[in-house]
Simulated assay, not measured.
Amino acid sequence: MEIKSSTKFVAELIGTFGLVLFGCGAAAVAGATTLGGLSGLGLLGIALAFGLSVVVFAYAIGGISGCHINPAVTIGVLVAGKISVKDAVIYIVAQLIGALLGALVLQQILHGQISGFNSGEWAYGSNGWGKGYQNEYGITAAFLTEAVLTFIFLFVILATTSRVGNSTMAGLAIGLTLALIHLVAIPITGTSVNPTRSFGPAILAGGQALSQLWLFIVAPVAGAILAAIVWLVLKPKGTLSR
């Protein structure tokens, strides 16, 4: 059955919207200790929020668009020959809009605090590095982390969704991989491996988050392209990827 481009557009928009709202929302809203004394989600909780978001939308919209919800994934899949240039452009535009809308809703929720909300630098779950961010890792560590972990993420996606992979469990495997990635990278960059996940919050946060956004575009895309090339070389001959 042929799926219309407009349907794929809406699916990717909604999926990316949900990923940003749930993932960045977990970091910005529930990640910190509440006034009532309840402990926040912590590292594991935030990692699971991102990972489970991917699992949920993989099964919700995977049959429509493949559930990329990430320009690095779309570009990697394009390099691997599994999507057309036209669809790749449609996906990326949808992802950018969805991420911005997700961050905008999160912003409005946070500013609804009666006691007032002080956004500060790197607000709304923004990614970053350097002085004042998380454990203050430098730019080299940040770039290496994002590139290598995106490489792993994209390789898992290509392998599990191929004809030699277990496609029925692909959504779960991909989501768990993203959760593992967050366990490593949250203290370093807040974890992107997804340019639009960084784009939405950075646009609204401005300042350092916006000035550092380039790294969270370049590093994930570089890692995804390399993963696609490696997959094309290593995949079993005589098989066609889905």
Rank of each mutant, 00 (worst) to 15 (best):
34 T>S: 15
34 T>Y: 09
36 G>D: 15
36 G>R: 12
36 G>Y: 04
37 G>A: 03
37 G>P: 05
37 G>Q: 08
38 L>M: 11
39 S>Y: 10
39 S>G: 13
39 S>P: 08
40 G>T: 13
41 L>E: 14
41 L>W: 12
43 L>E: 13
43 L>A: 12
44 L>V: 15
44 L>H: 06
45 G>S: 13
45 G>Y: 11
46 I>M: 14
46 I>S: 14
47 A>F: 04
47 A>E: 09
48 L>N: 10
48 L>Y: 10
49 A>H: 09
49 A>W: 09
49 A>I: 11
50 F>C: 05
50 F>G: 08
50 F>H: 12
51 G>E: 11
51 G>C: 13
52 L>I: 03
52 L>D: 01
52 L>A: 02
53 S>Q: 10
53 S>W: 02
54 V>T: 03
54 V>I: 12
54 V>D: 01
54 V>G: 01
54 V>H: 03
55 V>R: 03
55 V>K: 08
55 V>S: 05
56 V>I: 13
56 V>S: 13
56 V>W: 06
57 F>L: 07
57 F>Y: 13
57 F>Q: 05
58 A>L: 03
59 Y>M: 07
60 A>M: 15
61 I>W: 07
61 I>T: 13
61 I>A: 12
62 G>N: 05
63 G>V: 08
65 S>P: 09
65 S>W: 08
65 S>D: 08
65 S>L: 06
66 G>K: 01
67 C>Q: 00
67 C>Y: 00
67 C>S: 10
67 C>P: 04
67 C>G: 00
68 H>G: 00
68 H>A: 01
68 H>I: 02
68 H>D: 01
68 H>Q: 07
68 H>L: 04
68 H>M: 04
70 N>L: 02
70 N>V: 00
70 N>F: 02
70 N>C: 01
72 A>M: 12
72 A>N: 14
72 A>L: 14
74 T>R: 04
74 T>L: 00
75 I>G: 01
75 I>H: 09
76 G>S: 05
76 G>E: 03
77 V>M: 12
80 A>K: 02
80 A>E: 00
80 A>I: 01
80 A>N: 03
80 A>R: 00
81 G>I: 03
81 G>L: 02
81 G>N: 04
82 K>C: 05
83 I>V: 14
83 I>A: 06
84 S>E: 12
85 V>K: 13
86 K>H: 08
86 K>R: 14
87 D>M: 13
87 D>N: 15
87 D>L: 15
88 A>D: 14
88 A>C: 14
89 V>N: 07
89 V>G: 07
89 V>T: 14
90 I>A: 06
90 I>D: 04
90 I>S: 12
90 I>T: 13
91 Y>V: 03
91 Y>P: 05
91 Y>Q: 03
92 I>D: 05
92 I>T: 08
92 I>E: 12
94 A>C: 10
94 A>Y: 06
94 A>W: 05
94 A>H: 11
94 A>Q: 08
95 Q>I: 00
95 Q>G: 00
96 L>P: 09
96 L>S: 13
96 L>F: 15
97 I>N: 11
97 I>V: 15
98 G>E: 01
98 G>W: 00
99 A>C: 02
99 A>L: 00
99 A>N: 02
100 L>N: 12
